[in-house]
Design a protein around this nucleic acid. Structure first.
Length: 430
RNA sequence: GGAGAGGUGGCAGAGUGGUCGAAUGUACCUGACUCGAAAUCAGGCAUACCGCAAGGUAUCGAGGGUUCGAAUCCCUCCCUCUCCGCCA
């Protein structure tokens, strides 16, 4: 959520910055709501002040045993007008709130201006493309050759966009996740966390998935007293982990907070019909190791570079070629101020494919969540939150399969994963 | 699932219809005393919004209700704790 003060003080500038990401801010509507709010709020507060003062007099008079019928008659007439004013105020405030909740974050000044993915800026390439003296196969064919990648059965069990791993591939998948977790906890100073996969609406609101992107989520209805209040399946561990600090005031000396979590992620992939239908690239369920940091605002951009480096380390240790891309204003996510994507080289597709996305949200999520720390002056101040995939496990599995394939279709297991594979050095063809 | 007890400021903990936004303790900040610290003493110390300011408004788990007036009474819900049952 943006700071409403920024909109009040410098609406044109906010609108201009939002425009760079293709968002049209209805400034007239905002100004109108603000004007209404001011009028109604002032009026309401005047009425409340009047009522409070009179009621106080009644209490005072009664305590002295005086007659109060005259004053009580006077204040009685306030009731209806006050109720009306309060209701009107609540309506305007709710409208303002929902307008505010649907505004995306302001891109940071350093973010390249652009319309789409095509305008993203490549920051660096690391490693080299592997060369093959045979025709490369994609991970689906490779999975069939060595066995253990079974889409047909997954479809029977659940439907499209689900996968089933068995045997060596299932173990390789687990090995990747474990390797990532161990690296981030042992070498990068993250605290391992195990979190709920079903979360409430307040958490989804906190990180920005709600109210605007409900159709991307899997919703689990449940009865709650009279009505119903849904659970949602997490689309990323960012949601439960970042919400750890919702409504908290973190002591300064505890910063930065750094958490890592390995979780499944559930996405409805609404609006992605027909995209990436083959293979493991785009699924309703996939695993991800997620890095999350909550930091002092002065340090969030340095933290972003570090976090990005932590994610890159995994690819380097796995010996995978990748590039880092800085997303342009038109391509960054709703809540993000700055985002780097890491794209891994996939030889079978002859292209780089997103495997991690690392973002600084500045105070955008913290303001929604009221996630604060006590600053050096002892005052509560909004934190900055960051997160990044470190990495998407399913896509990393794809990258390992495709980059480590041999002429016969077998897969050499990267050195760093072998301890997690019981010393195995190769997945042989079935 | 059944029975009971609770949810108040950073923390602990009073407060059961009227100068209560809330005693007290503790933590923290400032000052005094001290060579310095501890102890002691004095003062300060919730958040948000409106306002140039004076000041005002809201917030005592959430929502609704009663009332001139609600932390306090009523209703619904959520959460926590204790005991019992069930259970990976």
């Amino acid at each position: 959520m943006l700071d409403i003060q920024a909109l009040r003080n410098d609406l044109a500038n906010v609108a201009a910055r939002l425009a760079t990401r293709g968002f049209v801010l209805d400034t007239a509507k905002f100004e109108q709501l603000e004007a209404e709010r001011k009028t109604i709020q002032t009026r309401t507060q005047e009425l409340q002040a009047g009522r409070n003062a009179t009621s106080k007099q009644i209490g005072f008079a009664k305590s002295k045993g005086e007659d109060t019928t005259a004053i009580m008659a006077e204040v009685a007439s306030l009731g209806d007008e006050l109720k009306l004013a309060e209701t009107g105020l609540a309506v305007v405030l709710a409208e303002l709130q929902s307008l505010l909740e649907e505004l995306p974050n302001l891109p940071h000044d350093s973010v390249p201006v652009g319309k789409s993915e095509a305008d993203n800026v490549e920051v660096r390439k690391v490693g080299t493309k592997p060369s093959f003296d045979f025709a490369v196969q994609d991970h689906v064919s490779l999975g069939e050759k060595i066995g253990g990648l079974d889409f047909a059965t997954a479809t029977k069990i659940s439907g499209a966009r689900f996968s089933l791993l068995t045997g060596g591939l299932a173990r390789l998948h687990r090995a990747l996740a474990q390797f990532m977790l161990d690296t981030h906890t042992d070498q990068h100073g993250y605290v391992e966390t195990y979190v709920p996969y079903l979360v409430n609406a307040a958490s989804m609101r906190g990180t920005g998935q709600l109210p605007k992107f409900e159709e991307d989520l899997f919703k689990v209805p449940r009865q709650m007293g009279d009505g119903e209040e849904n659970f949602y399946l997490i689309p990323t561990a960012e949601v439960p982990v970042t919400n750890m600090v919702r409504d908290e005031i973190v002591p300064l000396e505890k910063l930065p907070l750094k958490f890592v979590a390995h979780t499944p992620c559930f996405r409805s992939e609404a609006g992605s019909a027909g995209r990436d239908t083959r293979g493991l690239i785009r699924q309703h369920q996939f695993d991800k190791v997620e890095l999350v940091q909550m930091v002092d605002p002065d340090e969030s951009f340095a933290a972003l570079e570090q976090l990005l480096g932590h994610a890159e380390t995994i690819l380097q240790k796995l010996g995978l070629h990748y590039r880092v891309v800085k997303l342009c204003t038109g391509d960054i996510g709703f809540s993000s101020s700055t985002t780097y994507d890491i794209e891994v080289w996939l030889p079978a597709q002859d292209t780089y494919r997103e495997i991690s996305s690392c973002s600084n949200f500045e105070a955008f999520q913290a303001r929604r969540m009221q996630a604060r720390f006590r600053n050096a002056q002892g005052k509560p101040e909004l934190l900055h939150t960051l997160n990044g995939s470190g990495l998407a496990v399913g896509r990393t599995l794809v990258a390992v399969l495709e980059n480590y394939q041999q002429a016969d279709g077998s897969i050499v297991i990267p050195e760093v994963l072998r301890p997690y594979m019981g010393g195995l050095s190769k997945l042989a063809i079935a």
